[in-house]
Design a protein around this nucleic acid. Sequence first.
DNA 1: CCTCGCATGTAACACGTTACATGATTCA
DNA 2: TGAATCATGTAACGTGTTACATGCGAGG
Lengths: 183, 183
Amino acid sequence: MNAARPSNVAHVILGFLSTKEDTPKSGYDIKQLIDKSVCFFFAASYGQIYPELKKLTAAGLVEGTDEATGGRARTTYKITESGRATLRSWLLEDENRVEMRDQGLLRILFADTLSPAERVEKLRQLRGQRVADLAEVEAIEIGPEGDGLLMPELLIDYGVGMHRYEIDWCDRAIARLEKDADA
Amino acid sequence: MNAARPSNVAHVILGFLSTKEDTPKSGYDIKQLIDKSVCFFFAASYGQIYPELKKLTAAGLVEGTDEATGGRARTTYKITESGRATLRSWLLEDENRVEMRDQGLLRILFADTLSPAERVEKLRQLRGQRVADLAEVEAIEIGPEGDGLLMPELLIDYGVGMHRYEIDWCDRAIARLEKDADA
DNA sequence: CCTCGCATGTAACACGTTACATGATTCA
DNA sequence: TGAATCATGTAACGTGTTACATGCGAGG
């Protein structure tokens, strides 16, 4: 019976359910929160969120309330004391795994097999995409829920700085390639 | 019959098989190359590499040579013309998806529910881990295979700068939290 | 000769995405 | 009243990790 160790997504859900007010939230609400705040370093799809909410309910970490209207289902969830404890011990763990899969950098790595002009073009393309990503992060607004919280602000700062670094690196790399092409 | 579009891992394999010399490589060799060069932005396990090599063989993108010694299997692969063409068209694609899952940042995001002292401790812990990551990237050496290639060098530079940025951000965040704690 | 690390691989499982289905609400 | 979009979910599929199995070679 013993339930599997809660996944990453489980903890994100618990985190978003443990705000000051503890406003009950639906799966849809949680997905929106993720997409509008942490999407630049963590993603989750409905296909993970809804099943996970059921598992968390079964484990007693959240409690659902049925708020169906007519033929349309709707369940909102709030965190339990047990859920809060689980979240807390997860927060204190010291293993902070980072997983990354960056297709753009991969293509740059093998770009030695392309022509000099194509290489530079790839880098420009990558730069353009990162500029767009930066704009998205800059557009994130901390809603009323996060009011007074420091962490969301710090993390947006992180994301902005990170994307700026990537853009600068692209510029340097392009300059370097162009110098080589001249020589 | 029509084969599924080759995955990410397939292209990484093709990339590492398409160096100047085209030295045939085994699955083990490829895994080593990945771990010792692009591990900070792309990972792959044997469980992906070996089956993928078989699929690539079936698709005619690589050719395997049996080099078994006694009861011990060993197959080395080299890229075919068709594989080279596939790699090239993948390199030129313009969709450069980035996937990231960063547990450390996630924990920082929800650290508002911890005490001020615990918060700072989390950030110090994260900083320490990123320092270790930086050391790993700095230790990467471009082997004889990559000699004269510009891209591996540029990417190591990318990784070093990225980790330095993260460490700086941790320092700033810690300073910020400590100032708040005093006030 | 025994053990340990290298090298090669597979099978079972966990994780995540995509495509789809369905009902409610809004607005032209 | 029809189309678009919001809201809720599921099923099928593809991706990626872990744990295991097996044989070889080197060193005590």
